[in-house]
């Protein structure tokens, strides 16, 4: 997984060097403007907007068409199976984060789901655990850092990965390093490597496919899609961090797949 991101980081770095401008902080005489500036927490806005344009270009010519093709090529029950299997493969990472967040019950759920779905669920293709009353949830190291009290830091828009921030981006890297599959693939032969690429590719396709309608609707209805995505990402992460706490049932509890087992909830 880690190898596939390298071109993106060099692209991001190039854009960073090309556009190292900062948003202007409003003066203290405008308290409301200042409050909004701090709420947006987007000092790199000019750069981020540039990266958003880059992302949109990649998305228009590559990611969205690929997701559409995937949806067209693979019929629905199989796509659901792929999503379940990808979620199941992420279970070890979710388990580690459950433990690190001090949630033994959720960790036990993740472990039980992994064991049930890997066996009775035919390598994770069927979510038998959900049918047995153990619905999945997602966790990642960005959320763990938040639970430990770390703030998110300035907003970042990373081409292909989407909206993020230093905390969640670091968490994304830690999750890759903490994933046993990463090491199996790194130590393995060319077959293992091919499987690793397949998993990365399917994760990207599955995630983008699940977001086709949501992103289309933002692009069609928002007068400023960048601002909409920035606000939506923050709110969504806040809900994920408190595990949906104060709000009603997260999507995975009603089986939308978005976020079930953690394969596709956070933009990655």
């Amino acid at each position: 997984m880690s190898f596939s991101r390298r071109p993106l980081f060099s692209l991001a770095l190039a854009a960073l060097l090309a556009l190292s401008a900062c948003a202007t902080r409003p003066p203290a005489s405008e308290p409301e403007a200042l409050a909004e500036y701090e709420l947006n927490n987007d000092p790199l806005e000019p750069l981020n907007r540039g990266l958003y344009v880059v992302h949109n270009g990649i998305d228009t010519v590559l990611l969205r068409p690929a997701a559409e093709f995937y949806r067209f090529l693979i019929p629905q029950p199989i796509r659901g199976g792929v999503r379940n299997a990808l979620g199941n493969l992420r279970s070890p990472v979710i388990f580690v984060n459950d433990v690190l967040q001090g949630s033994p019950e959720r960790a036990a759920t993740t472990l039980a789901r992994f064991l049930m779905n890997s066996t009775f669920g035919v390598a994770g293709l069927f979510d038998v655990a959900e049918a047995a009353g153990l619905p999945g949830h997602t966790e990642d190291f960005g959320q763990t850092l938040a639970v430990w009290g770390l703030g998110d830091g300035p907003f970042l828009f990373i081409p292909v990965l989407g909206p993020s921030n230093p905390r969640d981006l670091a968490g994304f890297g830690v999750d890759i390093a903490a994933d046993p599959m990463t090491w199996v693939i790194a130590d393995g032969d060319s077959t293992a490597e091919a499987l690793g690429w397949t998993r990365t590719g399917l994760t990207a396709l599955d995630t983008r496919e699940s977001l086709i309608e949501a992103i289309d609707s933002v692009n069609e209805t928002s007068l400023d899609p960048y601002a909409t995505l920035r606000s939506a990402y923050r709110q969504r992460r806040a809900q994920e961090i408190r595990n949906g706490g104060a709000n009603a049932a997260p999507a995975d509890a009603i089986g939308t797949g978005l976020g079930a087992g953690g394969s596709s909830s956070a933009p990655r």
Binding site: E36, N40, S222, L223, D224, Y226, A227, T228, R230, S231, A232, Q235, R236, A238, Q239, E240, G244, N247, P250, A251, L258
Partner: peptide
């Protein structure tokens, strides 16, 4: 509110960005 995302908060952000810019 859809999956933790409030429509009025998101739209406030959107409209304010249009005016600010």
């Amino acid at each position: 509110i859809a999956e933790g995302t409030s429509l009025r908060l998101t739209q406030r952000s959107e409209y304010s960005a249009v005016i600010s810019r």
